[in-house]
Amino acid sequence: MSSRPACAIQSALCVMACAAQPAFAQGSVTLYGNVDEAMVYANNQKGNSNVYMRNGNLYASKFGFKGSEPLSTDLKAIFDLQQGFDPGTGAQQSAGLAFNRYAFVGLQDTRAGTLTLGRQYTPYYLLAGTLGPVTYLTGATGAHPGDIDGFDTDIRANSSVTYTSPTISGFRGSVQYGFGGVAGSMKSGSMFSAAIRYDGGPLSIGAGYLRMNNTEYSGGFDPAASASFPHSELNNGYLSARNVQHAAALATYAVGNLLLGVNYSNVVYRPGGHSLFTDTAVFNTYGALASYRISTPFEISGGYSYTRASTANGIHDAARYQQISLRELYHLSKRTTLYTLQAYQHASGQTLGVKGAGDIIDALPIVGDSQNTTPSSTSNQFVAMFGIAISF
């Protein structure tokens, strides 16, 4: 038999085999990320001024892999894996976590919404918090003191399941539950979050709720619990709380090149039998911001926030924090940005130290969330940064 008939027979068999299989659209995988590094000046870090390098100020330094596979006209499978790193040293952002920022898999339907499972950000942050100061002022110097209300990307939920609705007439909502994994007590170590958002023309409004439950852990907030949140001098005395609750409402309004925003948050630390404090502690924060695009490459933003703690646990002069934040951007291209950041914070009053009730200390300023481990030794702190960020 000649080779030509043989090739014809093989071609026919291939066509028949392909025709017998259902037609699936091809999936896709995308590599993405940011590299961000800056020179920083802080006038007071535990009593000393400092000039140093810091990463992830405008955008978090990270890389990730995300992908999808169409399963039908409306339904597709999705996943996203994201790792933070320090370009100054090459180190992982969190040792021992391959994808510390998040890692989830799920299904997305254009009509029914999206269901995801894994380590994820909360609806409180994604739908509400993104309308706040971090988006327009950065988390490093623009987050409310110590990121007390979780408007930055500091709160994540392990072993969580999230449902997010499709957008209907400008509205979308989302709910999330994180499993604590404690045998015999489903509530212990668990978390719950819900949020709703409206986007219509120049106006955006978001409201969110978050509740993080501790376990019977008495050394603070159990690191094995589903959710984690930032620690600083603001809340060190309340880390042994039975649960921590966040509630927030935010709004922005755009007029041409000008965007205005207001935000409010309420953070509650509730004591339990294993807590080192006895009375419920509350932090209320009020904020306002403005962002203006002067020209195609240049934009500026500014904001003010006022945070006040409750008079509880023997404290009669409640801690108060006032912060002014500025951000200037010059876009060299769609992917490359030069930036400068400045922030000043003044603290007054008292709060609890790490020993809890009875350990009353002076409130110390902590600019944004860049100084959580390095508060000022006086009542004032100033931080300035100059950096470059590249997205890919």
Results as ranks from 00 to 15, higher is better:
Ser379Arg: 13
Pro223Thr: 00
Gly139Tyr: 02
Gly181Gln: 11
Ser94Glu: 15
Val267Asp: 14
Gly113Arg: 00
Leu259Thr: 15
Tyr102Cys: 06
Ile361Arg: 08
Leu75Tyr: 10
Ser376Asp: 13
Tyr304His: 11
Thr340Leu: 08
His274Glu: 02
Ala25Phe: 14
Ser28Gln: 12
Met385Glu: 12
Ser348Ala: 13
Ser275Ala: 07
Phe298Glu: 04
Ser348Ile: 07
Ile360Arg: 03
Met39Asn: 03
Ala224Thr: 02
Thr162Leu: 10
Gly27Asn: 07
Val35Thr: 13
Ala140Glu: 05
Met191Ile: 00
Ser232Tyr: 12
Tyr238Thr: 09
Pro87His: 06
Asn50Ser: 15
Ser49Leu: 06
Leu137Met: 05
Asn236Asp: 13
Leu58Cys: 01
Val161Ala: 09
Arg335His: 03
Gln45Asn: 15
Ser11Met: 10
Ala140Pro: 01
Ala95Lys: 07
Ile360Cys: 01
Gln26Tyr: 11
Thr114Asp: 04
Ala23Met: 12
Ala319Arg: 06
Pro70Trp: 10
Cys18Arg: 15
Ser240Pro: 05
Gln322Phe: 13
Leu117Cys: 00
Gly272Ile: 02
Asp147His: 06
Thr167Ile: 09
Asn235Trp: 10
Asn266Arg: 09
Gly387Ile: 08
Gln345Phe: 04
Gly27Asp: 08
Ile294Gly: 03
Val161Gly: 08
Asn372Lys: 14
Gly106Leu: 01
Tyr253Ile: 04
Ala251Gly: 06
Gly113Cys: 04
Thr336Trp: 12
Ala194Thr: 07
Glu216Thr: 02
Phe192Tyr: 06
Tyr339Gln: 04
Thr162Trp: 05
Leu81Thr: 01
Ile361Tyr: 03
Gly314Cys: 14
Gln345Tyr: 04
Ser325Tyr: 13
Gln176Gly: 02
Phe192Thr: 03
Lys187Val: 11
Leu97Ala: 15
Ser169Glu: 07
Ser301Trp: 07
Met1Asp: 12
Asp80Asn: 12
Thr73Lys: 07
Thr122Lys: 03
Asp74Met: 01
Thr73Gly: 08
Thr278Tyr: 05
Asn257Arg: 09
